[in-house]
């Protein structure tokens, strides 16, 4: 890098020295300058050669470190930020997808961990819950609370898989599939909870 910069400086030096050595007519210089300046393509080619060398001398790693350092120094909020944008259907469904995902993970982990630690078997704890004698409507709501995250995350997951293959990115389709997935998730949830 340094060698190449030196190379260019050297060539420019030679160029100027040659000019100074040979120039006894100021008009020739003017002619030359005009010639160079009129040659826009030449200038355009020279510009990145002169400037981008310096700005691009940072590696990607250095650049990312600088990015994080700046974020830290300025105490910038994290990305993706949750409260900085006004809510839209698209972003709300996106965060709901993540929320249901985290919730279901916590749920299945809690089941696995608790059932291996607790002294009694599943039937015992189910009897305990039954003994609390929830009304039928509360039981229905409980089932919905279990099924809806599964249904929504699964359906919206299919939407994500479609995006992964490159389909469904235009705004109209995004909203259409979003509403469709949301509506269908409630229909499926009601159906399964009624079983």
């Amino acid at each position: 890098m340094a060698a190449e910069k030196y190379d260019i400086n050297c060539e420019l030096d030679n160029f100027l020295q040659e000019l100074l050595r040979n120039f006894d007519e100021i008009t020739a210089m003017a002619l030359l300058l005009r010639g160079v300046c009129r040659n826009h393509q030449l200038l355009a080619r020279m510009q990145p050669m002169m400037t981008s060398r310096v700005t691009m001398s940072m590696t990607a790693k250095q650049e990312q470190d600088k990015f994080w350092d700046t974020n830290k120094r300025l105490n910038r909020p994290m990305s993706p930020h949750l409260t900085i944008y006004s809510p839209q259907v698209t972003s709300m469904l996106s965060i709901t997808h993540r929320g249901t995902g985290v919730g279901l993970t916590v749920g299945i982990y809690a089941l696995g961990l608790s059932m291996s630690v607790l002294p009694h078997d599943f039937a015992h704890y189910l009897e305990m819950i039954k003994a609390l004698s929830f009304g039928p409507s509360l039981l229905f709501l409980t089932k919905m609370a279990i099924v809806w995250p599964v249904a929504f995350h699964s359906l919206n997951g299919v939407r994500h898989l479609a995006w992964d293959t490159g389909y469904g990115y235009d705004i109209k389709t995004l909203y259409k599939t979003g509403y469709f997935v949301l509506g269908l998730s409630f229909v499926i949830t009601a159906g399964i909870a009624m079983l």
């Binding site: 299945i108 059932m115 291996s116």
Partner: peptide, 22 residues
């Protein structure tokens, strides 16, 4: 936590009614 949870779920499948039956 993931490893422990998986072990716990396997335990539940082996010693108890299992996920779907539950």
């Amino acid at each position: 936590i993931s490893a422990l949870s998986f072990a716990g779920l396997c335990y539940f499948n082996y010693n108890d009614v299992g996920l779907t039956k539950a």
